[in-house]
């Protein structure tokens, strides 16, 4: 559940940022900027996804 929620939120966030950049940023920067966003997007997923459940459980125990 938490994993699915994370993937949906993370994807929606990057789609929003990418769309705003696509509309506002000068044309020849767009492709390089999209590469940068794409890199951050995938890095975020591979970095956070495996630790997600453990982190949520830790925070739950900490605040409970």
């Amino acid at each position: 559940m938490i994993e699915t929620l994370f993937l949906i939120t993370w994807t929606a966030l990057f789609l929003m940022i990418a769309y705003m950049s696509w509309v506002k940023i000068a044309k020849h920067f767009k492709i390089y900027l999209m590469m940068l966003y794409n890199w951050l997007y995938l890095t975020g997923i591979f970095l956070m996804f495996p630790k997600l459940r453990h982190t949520v459980e830790y925070l739950y125990e900490y605040f409970a």
Binding site: Y32, W39, L42, F46
Partner: peptide
């Protein structure tokens, strides 16, 4: 899970090659 460090390095390499 996939090995996190390997995946992050590969993500950087793949984007560098694309760039």
């Amino acid at each position: 899970y996939p090995v996190i460090a390997s995946m992050i390095i590969l993500t950087a390499i793949a984007h560098f090659i694309l760039f």
